[in-house]
């Protein structure tokens, strides 16, 4: 299906000249970037560089002031977030945004929303089609639960999990929407070294499934280890982009991070 829509397309996501103004503050000053499919793209930069703002623009939570966002060649800026989710973009949040009183399994089941369609009356009357769909939702959710390795916490309320597992659960919930592009907003934030290792491993397994991952992260070890490409943002504009090796040696990056000498 993907080939049919755009065979010559070399990027899954194209950000063309995106600007974001909040009143007088310019959070993004014209970002131009294309993400090739099937890679782990890291997005780094100091706090306030505009990384999360860019994520919000891609997932539709805010509308860019200028510029366009194209997903698989299709313009998605101006669309509502739930429609963008339907197209195949999913995400996690910097401050874990789980449904805390729902169980772990229910959180993942909710992720099946864009791929299912039983409506209000069908669920209230428990029509046969809805029951079939509900069984499938449960099956798929269990699969994702095992994929991320949370199988033994299925029926716990999500809010009772330790932070490390909450971050993993958020990824599982996002994966349940069958995304082709996954946005991870500081998934290693607050995790210890062991948990970060497990996370890095998980992200690489996700890439192996053919999902493109964009990763906002401060943990440089993790980024250098798993990222295929890195984009550096600084005060709302692009400072540099390239492979981890190129970024490490980039003079502008060194100056921004270590301070000009």
């Amino acid at each position: 299906m993907q080939e049919a829509c755009c065979p010559e397309l070399s990027s899954i996501l194209e950000i063309s000249d995106v600007q974001m103004h909040f009143g007088g503050i310019v959070a993004l000053k014209g970002i131009r970037y294309a993400v090739p499919p099937g890679i782990i793209q890291a997005l780094i930069g100091p706090n306030g560089a505009g990384k999360t703002t860019l994520f919000h623009c891609i997932s539709g939570l805010i509308q860019p002031t200028f510029g366009h966002v194209l997903f698989e060649g299709r313009q998605i800026d101006g669309m509502l977030p739930h429609k963008i989710a339907r197209l195949g973009i999913s995400r996690t949040f910097q401050h874990v945004a789980l449904f805390k009183s729902m169980t772990v399994l229910e959180n993942i089941m909710l992720g099946r929303h864009p791929k299912t369609k039983s409506g209000f009356w069908a669920t209230g009357l428990r029509l046969p089609a809805m029951r079939r769909e509900e069984r499938k939702i449960l099956e798929t959710a269990r699969y994702h639960l095992d994929f991320v390795g949370l199988g033994d916490s299925a029926n716990l309320p999500a809010g009772t999990l330790p932070l490390g597992k909450q971050r993993i659960l958020e990824i599982a919930r996002a994966l349940a929407t069958d995304p082709r592009l996954l946005l991870l907003d500081e998934p290693a934030g607050g995790l210890n070294i062991r948990e970060t290792e497990v996370l890095g491993d998980l992200i690489q397994r996700i890439r192996a499934c053919g999902v493109t991952v964009i990763l906002v992260e401060h943990d440089m070890n993790l980024v250098m280890e798993i990222a295929d490409r890195i984009l550096v943002l600084h005060y709302g504009s692009q400072l540099a982009s390239g492979t981890p090796m190129e970024i490490m040696d980039h003079p502008a990056v060194i100056e921004a991070y270590l301070g000009g000498g």
Partner: peptide
């Protein structure tokens, strides 16, 4: 589930479709 999700984290619910 969608309704309960809206009640707890509206932005996350919207982003999950």
């Amino acid at each position: 589930r969608g309704l309960r999700a809206i009640h707890e984290e509206e932005m996350a619910a919207e982003s999950m479709g």
